[in-house]
Structure formats: structure tokens, C-alpha cells
Write a protein that binds this DNA or RNA. Structure first.
Length: 258
DNA sequence: ATGCCGTGGAAACCACGA
């Protein structure tokens, strides 16, 4: 079973790219972030025509997350991260599909830091850590995936010294990510490629993709129940080179059937 | 060092992104 995550940066603006990639890569389950579309503007018909069922939580202009599946029913569990009923951003959706519990997330960017946006990021992170603990306590096969907006280590950025004061790389951010990982999650891509340089995002500016000036900020976190089912993982980095493409590339894993 | 590009929405610019 192939599962992917992709920050599309506008699901309607990128629809041709999304459909081309779905056809080429043929993942069974897809987590999307940054739909940038209100609930009623999600392109369900085109997604259905591509062979996928979908659940989504849209929002006007910004954020927005979705889970697509062409394998098994999507049983939605929640469409918000617990812990703050006043949080109106659409950044989390969770569902059971085919024996997997999948959390699709778009963690706040947090810039500029310090400031209220960074505070929001850290508060969101606290809620994610709390929820992560609850997910692991289920002792089920769980996947937490999406755009974490976290550069986990110096090895995950082309020029770390330029990013030390950035909300994606600040000590508080890395520390929060370490706290989450310490619960027992496995970083799927790092587990399979401990020494490879892996990027999932390249800025639109300064020919970042051409220079491979990238960041690794889209992650697949697996619960221990999935440790021995992880078969392969990768980044479809060539998609970042397409016309009218997102600044992120799709990331995927494959799991052995149980 | 920098939003230099790109999106959506409102309004011919702005907020936001990483």
C-alpha cells in the first residue's frame, strides 16, 4: 500500500499538476495540505474521476487539508486538532482507512519569530504532542503525516546557518519536534535513508530548485506498530520541476499489507 | 539580507507563505 503527502499550495490552481501526479504515482492514500479553497470549492468531481474518494476541511484563502483514498472506505475521525475550540484554521484531519489511522496535518509556519504567529505555532505543536500521545496509546498502526514546517536537523537544510532564526528551524521548534518523536514515532524517510540528503521543499525564488537549495519539512511519522511494515519511501522531486507546480514535492511510503 | 515568486480574494493592492 502506497501512502503519500503533498502540500499542493492551492488545490484548484494546481489541479492539473495534482491529477498528473496522481495518475503517474498512483498512491492508494493521499494527504493534501494548503488547499487554499473554501469547503464548497474542493474539486471533488475531478478527484473522483481520478479514482479517489475524499474527505476534506476547506477554508477560504488559506490552509485546508484533505485525505484521498482509492482503497477502502474513509472513516473520518475528526477534522480539527483537539485542545483549542477557538482555533479556526483548517490544519488537521484524521481518518481510518484500510486498518490505518491517518492524521493529515499542516503545522503553522510561525514566521516571523518571535511574535504571535510563532506563539501560535508552538501552541499548536503542544496540542499535537498531546494528541500524539493519545494516538500512540491506542497501540494501533498510526500515521502522522503532512507539512510539519519543521527542519528537524542541520542535515535537513541546504544552508543551516541561514535558518537559525527562522520559525522552521529555531531551537524551540526543533525541541518540540524532538519531544514529539521521543514519544516513540519513527521518521520513515530517515529510517530508510539515514545518511541521504533529502529535501521536500524548494523556494520559488533564486532558482532554489535548480540549485537544490531545499528543506526537508514534510514528514511521515509512523507508530511502532508499523515498524516492520515499512518497505520503501521517497520524494517525487521531479514534480517540483513541472510547470505551475507547488513549492513542495510529494513524499510517499509503501507499507507491506498485513 | 531580501517574499526576487506564487496563490487567493478583493480590488487594481493586500495577506500570506517558508
Amino acid at each position: 500500500m502506497k501512502i503519500a503527502t503533498y502540500n499542493v499550495n492551492g488545490v484548484n490552481g494546481r489541479l492539473p499538476v495534482l491529477l498528473r501526479w496522481l495518475h503517474e504515482s498512483a498512491p492508494d492514500i493521499v494527504c493534501l495540505q494548503e488547499l487554499k479553497a473554501p469547503q464548497e470549492k474542493f474539486p471533488l468531481e475531478a478527484i473522483n474521476d481520478a479514482g479517489y474518494e475524499a474527505i476534506w476541511h476547506g477554508q477560504k484563502s488559506w490552509n485546508g487539508v484533505a485525505i484521498l483514498s482509492k482503497k477502502g472506505q474513509i472513516a473520518e475521525v475528526r477534522r480539527a486538532l483537539p485542545g483549542d475550540p477557538d482555533d479556526v484554521h483548517s490544519r488537521y484531519i484524521e481518518a481510518r482507512i484500510n486498518g490505518l489511522l491517518i492524521g493529515c496535518l499542516y503545522l503553522p509556519n510561525g514566521n516571523p519569530a518571535p511574535g504571535p504567529k510563532f506563539d501560535y505555532k508552538l501552541n499548536w505543536f503542544k496540542r499535537l504532542i498531546q494528541h500524539g500521545q493519545e494516538l500512540l496509546a491506542l497501540k494501533e498502526p498510526v500515521i502522522l503525516t503532512g507539512d510539519f514546517n519543521v527542519i528537524p536537523t542541520e542535515f535537513d537544510v541546504y544552508k543551516p546557518e541561514r535558518w537559525v532564526d527562522d520559525a522552521l528551524f529555531r531551537p524551540e521548534t526543533r525541541s518540540a519536534f524532538q519531544d514529539l518523536m521521543a514519544q516513540g514515532w519513527g521518521d520513515a524517510l530517515r529510517k530508510l535513508y539515514p545518511n541521504e540528503q533529502i529535501y521536500t521543499f524548494w523556494d520559488y525564488f533564486r532558482n532554489a530548485y535548480g540549485r537544490n537549495a531545499g528543506l526537508r519539512i514534510d514528514h511521515f511519522l509512523l507508530s511502532p506498530q508499523l515498524d516492520n511494515r515499512l518497505q520503501s519511501a521517497g520524494v517525487d522531486r521531479h514534480v517540483r520541476g513541472w510547470e505551475k507546480t507547488s513549492d513542495h514535492a510529494p513524499v510517499w511510503i509503501t507499507l507491506a499489507d498485513q
